[in-house]
Amino acid sequence: MRKNVFFIAFLFLISGRAAAQSVTVEAKIDSLQILIGEQAKIQLQVAMDAKQKAVFPIFSDTLVKGVEIIETAKPDTQYLNNRQRLLITQEYSVTSFDSALYYLPPFAVQVDGKEYKSKALALKVYSIPVDTLHADKFFGQKPIMKAPFEWGDWWGLIGCSFIAIPLIILLIYFIIRLNDNKPIIRRIKVEPKLPPHQQAMKEIERIKSQKNWQKGNLKEYYTELTDIIRTYVKERFDFNALEMTSTEIIDKLLEMNKKEDISDLNILFQTADLVKFAKHDPDMNENDANLINAIEFINDTKVVEEENQKPQPTEITIIEKRSLRTKILLICGIVVLSVAIVGSFVYIGIQLYDLLA
């Protein structure tokens, strides 16, 4: 009795080990009959122990003569029996262009150096039946049909075109602004307008601080000083002294009965004309005296302001010079706009090609 038990256990052990090491190779085809040019799929499955290694057959482009391999899919691996067994599936897509019955020989698979084969397969390829008795039923190729017009196909192209137009205008504007080097920003500032005598005295103080006559710049000194007087006379007496000669200004003031106020002014104008046109070189005292004469003329002829009178406002245009940062921003804007425009045209070209092809 004990010997029988040991013998049965031994048989189970041997059968289990043999089952674990068994290898099966199976080939299946999804269609045994196809028409010329149609495709059929062949599945090659190998079941083996998970620790074993399999090498599948390698085909170039022909399975057998007359049967071509179109595609070899990637092997699919599946574990079975708690990862003890392994099932590998390899799929081939085949076709044929000659009608015949093809014999597909067994597929040979190498597993751990040992060759295993599947069963042979057969594939019947039929030609397309042709009705030769009714030749009038054959027609030539149909012309290419044009797809119907759809606005939906053109919306992206039209929208991109409308976007590209303002981008081009903005790009041209930036390029012009960069080339002419003019300021982009202008600000209008409203400031109180100074009375003529105060404005003139402000300019004289500026001349005094520059001290051009002490530096030998006599022509510049007398030009600025007489221009200040001319501007003051224009604002104070309401005639265009800026466009008149020194003699014409003196004569005009004489007509206005300003004899007592212009004697010193006449000396200033005469000295200035000699310096500017005759290269006269007055001494230091004479230069100081002429500056004092200008101040006294302004003080003697100024209009006495009413107490608590509010100064009249005036508009001053302030031009902000273009900074390096502004130039960099302009250049960056030009680059970005250029890329956007080029991209728009590429997109438009691709869309037109697709729609018209």
Rank of each mutant, 00 (worst) to 15 (best):
N212A: 11
F239G: 02
T271I: 15
I250M: 13
D300W: 01
I295Q: 04
L242S: 12
M284Y: 11
L274K: 11
E224T: 12
W213K: 03
N299P: 03
V275Y: 04
I298S: 05
F239L: 02
E243F: 05
D261E: 14
D238W: 10
E260M: 07
D251C: 00
E248N: 07
L254C: 00
I229E: 01
Q214G: 09
E220H: 09
Q270C: 02
T271K: 08
D281R: 13
L265M: 09
M284R: 11
K258D: 05
Q270E: 11
N240A: 08
A289C: 01
M244R: 14
L218T: 06
A241V: 04
T301S: 03
D283L: 09
D281Q: 14
N266D: 14
E224G: 08
L265T: 11
V303Y: 02
K252C: 04
E255H: 09
I229Q: 01
Y221G: 02
F277A: 00
I228N: 06
D288A: 14
H280S: 01
F239V: 06
L242V: 14
T226F: 07
S263K: 15
Q214N: 08
E307I: 14
P311R: 06
L225E: 06
V303G: 04
L242Y: 11
D238Q: 13
M284G: 00
N287A: 07
R236E: 11
K215S: 10
E307S: 07
L254Y: 09
I228P: 00
N308E: 08
K310M: 02
E224P: 07
Y221C: 05
A294E: 03
L291E: 03
I298K: 09
I249V: 05
E306H: 11
V275E: 00
M284I: 12
N293G: 04
F269K: 00
